[in-house]
Design a binder for these strands. Structure first.
Length: 502
RNA sequence: GGCCCCAUCGUCUAACGGUUAGGACGCGAGGUUUUCAACCUCGAAAUCGGAGUUCGAUUCUCCGUGGGGUCACCA
């Protein structure tokens, strides 16, 4: 395993920094968590450094099978690439903490030997008791002097198989000052700290130990994590000091709040990154949006991947916690869908429709048909999943004729007979249109002329036709749609609509 | 409650002692229009409160208020 940096070419915040994303495989990563990964990746790449993924699987009870894969998939979907990680290895392997137990144990031995840590044999019941007593006496809670066992005795009891944890011997007095890149120095009275656990009774390290050992071993220069870790910062500072290691820099990002205030949760519609993918969001949308909440750059709103790669700097992130703005996310997605290259849009539309269209529609879908439909809806959808509701009628040889009230609006209110007669007229005229003239402009000309003949406003006539042909009050552009649906089907639907109203 | 962090339009943010406090979402009005969108124009909308420091505070300091985090053998 490589040792620390050499003096020349020293890594710094803005020179080849090494940042890591250290998720626990306990479930799908949510937006706040994945934002951390995105930011770390961007900062590392902006300054020519490395981005590392390390799995923090030190809590066996919460581990979820398959979670590691879904975490990496989330990253890949967003376009985040890592230089070292559990799947690709690297110079500092392994990148899975459960494979690094020996390293933690060595560090524990070191601490025990220096009397900087102690074995604790207290039962959970006893610890609870201590806490309750502290609470009753209005003392700051925290396990300090739960047991005081001579090191030799402790070692003997451990050797005899008794269960124990290893705690850090936190100084009783003094002040620990730790630095946050964004907030500056933060000081903590040691008296408010506790003898926190380093090694659990199952032999796994806690986050505190693993973080310090691994981030040092992996030459991490900038640690980014959520604000909830600030209160643990002095513990980590003390630990780095105890090992004689240089402390890395830290940037604690604020949490993302729910629209109503408070933590963002599933209840607020917060989804995992993969769920956003399923719901029809584009990766570029999420990447942009994630950076837009908690970071900004002048007047710019739209940031491409390469914009971010050249502009993002961890020291510019916002301190105040941001609220998750679903509306803006949706708007962004619409914007990115509209900006999609035509061919790319066709491809993803095809994929989406094959997922969303009724099962009785034969797959694969006709590529040419998709190509003709795509331009009609590209600027009309916000999510890719919006498409199906707009275009399903193109695949239904038989649509159920909408109820009369869908036809009889505005001008046609209470005038079913008139509407029926008008539609019949439309059907006849369209039927007379030669097959060779069945195209958008001919159809448009015909219908506009007809409207004039009947002394109707174009919109009044088209409203009936739209509902008859598409089965919807709102649809893609009508003339184009009619051309695509085809003469036979169009005439048939119009006639059916006409008779349904008479 | 102790400790810690934070505070600009409803929301996301820009300003790094001097601006008519800017942009974006959303909202409202108008335009365009075959529906719906998209698009264009315009509009309303903010520096939490109070003391300081300074010629001058959104910006620096202190106090208050409000919000958040944390007090596990979870991360």
């Amino acid at each position: 395993m490589p040792v620390g940096n050499s003096d020349q070419n020293k890594r710094t915040l803005t020179n080849r920094p090494r940042l890591r994303y250290a998720p626990s495989p306990t479930g799908d990563p949510h937006v706040g968590n994945i934002r951390q990964a995105v930011w770390s990746w961007l900062h590392a790449k902006r300054y020519g450094g490395d981005f590392i993924v390390r799995l923090e699987d030190t809590d066996q009870s919460r581990a979820q099978p398959g979670a590691d894969k879904r975490i990496l998939d989330s990253l890949r979907w967003l376009g985040v690439e890592w230089d070292e990680g559990p799947d690709i290895g690297g110079e500092y392997a392994p990148y899975i903490q459960s494979h690094r137990l020996d390293l933690y144990h060595d560090h524990i031995k070191m601490l025990l030997k220096n009397d900087a840590a102690r074995r604790c044999f207290c039962s959970p019941e006893r610890l609870t008791e201590i806490r309750e007593e502290q609470q009753a006496n209005k003392l700051p809670p925290g396990i300090r002097d739960c047991c005081d066992i001579a090191p030799e005795d402790a070692e003997a009891r451990a050797a005899a198989g008794e269960s124990y944890v290893v705690r850090f011997k936190t100084p009783r007095e003094g002040t620990t000052v730790a630095t946050d890149l964004l907030r500056g120095d933060i000081s903590f009275e040691n008296s408010t700290l506790d003898d926190f656990v380093l090694l659990k009774s199952d032999g796994f390290p806690t986050y505190h130990l693993a973080h310090v050992v691994d981030d040092h071993a992996m030459d991490i220069t900038l640690v980014t994590r959520g604000e909830e870790w600030i209160s643990s910062l002095p513990r980590h500072a003390l630990l780095f000091d105890a090992f004689g290691y240089d402390r890395p820099e830290y940037a604690h990002a604020s949490v993302i709040k729910a629209p109503g205030g408070g933590k963002l949760s599933k209840r607020d519609g917060a989804k995992s990154i993969l769920e956003y993918a399923e719901d029809g969001y584009l990766p570029e949308t999420l990447l942009n949006f994630l950076c837009l909440t908690g970071w900004g750059h002048g007047d710019q709103t739209l940031f491409s991947r390469s914009d971010l790669l050249s502009l993002f700097d961890m020291s510019d992130i916002t301190l105040a916690s941001a609220t998750f703005d679903h509306d803006k996310l949706a708007w962004l997605n619409g914007t990115y869908i509209r900006a999609l290259d035509e061919n790319v849009f066709v491809t993803s539309l095809k994929r989406q429709l094959e997922l969303d269209l009724p099962v009785d529609v034969p797959r694969p879908l006709d590529e040419a048909l998709i190509e003709s439909i795509a331009p009609l809806i590209q600027e009309r959808i916000t999510l890719m999943t919006d498409a199906v509701a707009l275009v399903d009628f193109f695949w239904q040889s038989k649509i159920s004729t909408p109820p009369p009230e869908d036809f009889l609006v505005k001008k046609w209110r209470d005038r079913a007979q008139e509407a029926s007669a008008t539609l019949e007229r439309v059907g006849t005229r369209l039927n007379d249109l030669p097959d060779s003239s069945w195209n958008t402009s001919e159809i448009e000309a015909l219908l506009r002329n007809l409207a004039e003949e009947l002394s109707l406003k174009a919109g009044e006539l088209l409203s009936l036709v739209r509902t008859a042909v598409t089965g919807k009050r709102i649809s893609p552009p009508l003339f184009e749609s009619m051309e695509i649906v085809g003469k036979g089907l169009v005439v048939e639907r119009i006639n059916e609509a006409s008779s349904s109203l008479s």
